[in-house]
Computed example of a mutant assay.
Amino acid sequence: MTDHHQSTRGEPRVALVTCTELRDLDPDDRLVLAPLARHGVTAEPAVWDDPAVDWAGYDLAVLRSPWDYALRRDEFVAWAATVPTLANPADVVRWNTDKRYLAELSAAGVPTVPTSWVAPGESWQPLADSGEYVIKPAVSAGSQDTGRYDLADPEHRELAVAHVRRLSAAGRVTMVQPYLRAVDSAGETALLFLAGPDGLAFSHAIRKGPMLTGPDLGVEGLYKPEEICARTATEEQLAVAEKTLAAVPGGAERLLYARVDLIPGADGAPVLVELELTEPSLFLGHAEGAPERLAAAIRTHLDRRP
């Protein structure tokens, strides 16, 4: 096997952590390879659950696209704890891979989408007889096992109950949220932050169009393809993002990257949908200079090593 320990004598070596399905990295992540090389950093993909990888041999392991972890979250969190130099850190991974962190952020004063939680074994019935709601597991990647339900429709009500029951039977915590209709017009805004000399700094923002089209029936084709375009973040959005990052346990200054996903709430003010600190798409291809900024952030992390 390649001797990764040579990095202590020459160029630092970085693992870009991925999954078997994306063994050669997601195309967006490949954009950082050339800028890293210009920073004197050798980077290569490494599959998180490949037992042949010598994680201790890398100067830094950067979580990028290990998107198959959702149904193996305990295994993934345990693996993260064994990686000596992981970005973002293992304790952040443990906290951020269970979306019940939203309740903590809400308690800290961050405006979040109202969320109720259904533990495995608990019975659940819709409390309202109208309105649209989103049901999804507290541990998930992308929009897997996620559905949108119109509770005025008797069939949707039955499907919503069945969705919660299905997740519960699998031992998964369910989250129930009102569907914020502004996403249909304004879309979702993702604000990207990357590490700099003085901590996380805003890099760029993108707009994501609506994806959920209906109930989760356990089949493909329930979601629209992602519609991504560049977006200019507003001062109000940036303020919510900063407040969110200030509430991260252990401090946001340790982070290599963060993605703050916002949607206009009922009053039009931005509310947090998700805080992505583990394996977010960074949408490097949608902002000029973003790959170079990520490479510089990785170089900054490397230069902080003892």
Rank of each mutant, 00 (worst) to 15 (best):
D267K: 02
T213Q: 14
G221C: 13
V271D: 03
L194A: 14
F193A: 04
L255V: 06
S203T: 08
S203F: 14
I206A: 08
V248K: 02
E253W: 08
P215D: 09
V260R: 06
L275C: 09
D261M: 04
A266C: 00
D216Q: 04
S185D: 15
L277I: 09
L255H: 03
V260Q: 05
I206K: 04
T213Y: 00
E235G: 06
S203E: 10
L277K: 14
A247I: 01
S185N: 13
E226D: 15
G221V: 12
L222C: 06
G199W: 10
E188L: 01
Y179T: 05
Y179K: 02
I263T: 07
V240Q: 00
G265L: 05
F193Q: 03
Q237C: 07
H204P: 07
S185P: 01
D216N: 07
D216M: 03
A266S: 14
A195L: 10
A186F: 02
P249M: 13
G196P: 10
V271E: 03
P215T: 11
E242C: 11
D267Q: 08
E235R: 07
V273Q: 15
A205L: 12
G268P: 01
V248N: 01
L256G: 04
P270A: 11
V219R: 05
G251D: 10
L238C: 07
V183S: 13
